[in-house]
Simulated assay, not measured.
Amino acid sequence: MDQYAAMINATEYPPKFKHKVIFDTFSALPPSKAMLLVNDHDPLPLRYQFEAMHPNEFTWEYIEEGPDVFQVKIGKI
């Protein structure tokens, strides 16, 4: 966990709060730090939302790609 400033298990949040929690956590990250997102499906639509809201401000790296668990390292540039 030391390589991540925060970890979010999206399965623990109701759908209407997931993206808010994720974006609030990202906003609170210091530059050059990363968070780990854990989800039960590919969060590709979330990546598109990041691209629209935070262009050139983040990195996206799959750590685990399903089929039951997806882990994504989201870094702040």
Rank of each mutant, 00 (worst) to 15 (best):
M1L: 09
D2H: 14
D2Y: 07
Q3P: 12
Y4Q: 05
A5P: 13
N9C: 06
N9R: 09
T11A: 08
E12G: 05
Y13H: 06
P14W: 03
P14I: 00
P15G: 03
P15Q: 01
K16R: 09
K16F: 11
F17L: 04
F17D: 10
F17R: 06
H19A: 04
H19M: 06
V21K: 00
V21C: 01
V21G: 00
V21Y: 00
I22G: 01
D24H: 14
D24F: 11
F26H: 09
L29F: 14
L29V: 15
P30V: 08
P30D: 15
K33A: 12
M35N: 11
M35F: 13
N39P: 02
N39G: 01
H41F: 06
H41D: 03
D42K: 00
L44R: 11
P45E: 01
P45G: 02
L46I: 08
L46P: 11
R47G: 02
E51Y: 06
A52I: 09
M53A: 08
N56Y: 15
N56G: 12
N56E: 15
F58V: 07
F58G: 09
T59W: 13
W60L: 07
E64S: 10
E65L: 07
G66F: 02
D68K: 08
D68A: 11
D68Q: 14
F70V: 04
Q71E: 11
V72W: 01
I74D: 06
G75T: 09
K76H: 10
I77K: 15
